[in-house]
C-alpha cells in the first residue's frame, strides 16, 4: 500500500473521498468543509441561473475549478433525455467531461431507474463523457455499466440522505469481486464508521454529501470522514484478522507464576 493513489477516469487522486456541495448553510461553510475533508473531487448540480438576482454569489466563486475536479450530477432527472441534456449543458459550462449520472426512478426512495441509467450511460459514453453512474447495489447492473464503458460504478449503500449506512455489505462484496472498474459507494453513509466499513470492504472510493453537510458540525464531520476513509483503506490493505467465535490468548501461555 505504498503508493495508494486512486485512479479515476485517467487521473490520479490522493483522496478517495468525493464530497457533495448541497445542503450547506452557505458557500463559506461549503468550502471550509470541503477543505477539511481533503476531497479533490466535488459534486455539483446543474440548475437555471438566478435571473432576478444575477449578482448573487456563485458556488464556483468559492470552489475553484482549478483546484478541485468538478463533478456535475444529473440529480433530479427522471428520464434519459433530461439526464443526457443536463450532462451536455454541464460540459458546455466548461468543467470537463466527467459526470455523475443519476436517472431517478422513484421520488420516495430516490432509487435509480436501472434500465434508464444503462441507456443514458450508453449515449453519454458514446458522446465522449467519462461517466460515473449512481446505481443500486445490483451486481448485474454494475457489470453492465462497466461493459458499456463507464469510468466507475457507484452503487448506493442506502437511500440518498438516509444515513442508514451499508445496508447490504454482501452485495457490495460481490460487486467488488466482479468489478473491472473502480467501485465508489455513493449515498447512504451516516457517520464515520459507515465510511470506514465501506473502505474496509475494499471500495475504491466514497461519495458523501448529507452526512457531512447536515451534521451538527459539518466541518468536524468532514474531518471525521476524511480520517475514516483513510483508516478504512489502511485496514483493508493491512488485512484484517479472521473472525472467530472463541478466544485466542494474546499473552504467552507459558511462564506463568505458580
Amino acid at each position: 500500500m505504498k503508493d495508494d493513489t486512486f485512479e479515476l477516469a485517467g487521473k490520479r487522486y490522493k483522496s478517495r473521498l468525493i464530497v457533495g456541495t448541497g445542503k450547506y448553510r452557505d458557500f463559506a461553510e461549503t468550502r471550509a468543509a470541503i477543505e477539511e475533508s481533503g476531497a479533490e473531487i466535488v459534486t455539483v448540480a446543474v440548475r437555471r441561473v438566478n435571473i432576478t438576482d444575477p449578482n448573487k454569489e456563485n458556488l464556483l466563486d468559492y470552489i475553484d475549478p482549478k483546484k478541485w475536479q468538478i463533478l456535475p450530477n444529473t440529480a433530479g432527472c427522471y428520464t434519459v433525455e433530461d439526464a443526457v441534456r443536463t450532462c451536455r449543458l454541464a460540459r458546455e459550462a466548461g468543467v470537463g467531461d466527467l459526470v455523475k449520472l443519476e436517472v431517478i426512478g422513484d421520488q420516495a426512495t430516490l432509487f435509480p431507474d436501472v434500465p434508464a441509467t444503462l441507456e443514458a450511460a450508453r449515449i453519454l459514453v458514446k458522446d465522449g463523457f467519462k461517466v460515473l453512474p449512481y446505481i443500486t447495489d445490483d451486481p448485474v447492473a454494475c457489470l453492465r455499466l462497466a461493459e458499456i464503458g463507464c469510468a466507475a460504478v457507484m452503487p448506493l449503500a442506502a437511500p440518498i440522505g438516509s444515513g442508514m449506512g451499508i445496508r447490504n455489505p454482501f452485495n457490495l462484496r460481490i460487486i467488488l469481486e466482479q468489478a473491472k472498474v473502480p467501485v465508489i459507494v455513493d449515498a447512504g453513509v451516516g457517520t464515520a464508521s459507515d465510511a470506514a466499513e465501506a473502505m474496509e470492504l475494499g471500495c475504491d472510493g466514497l461519495l458523501i454529501n448529507s452526512a457531512i453537510a447536515s451534521a451538527k458540525d459539518p466541518i468536524a464531520m468532514a474531518r471525521a470522514m476524511r480520517l475514516a476513509v483513510e483508516a478504512g483503506r489502511l485496514a483493508y490493505g493491512a488485512g484484517r484478522i479472521e473472525q472467530k467465535l472463541y478466544a485466542t490468548a494474546s499473552s504467552p501461555l507459558s511462564g506463568l507464576i505458580r
Binding site: V44, R47, R48, N58, N73, A75, V95, L207
Partner: peptide, 10 residues
C-alpha cells in the same frame, strides 16, 4: 432559452 450554472448538490 435556458441558461444554467452550477449550484450545490450531491
Amino acid at each position: 432559452v435556458e441558461i444554467v450554472n452550477f449550484v450545490g448538490g450531491g
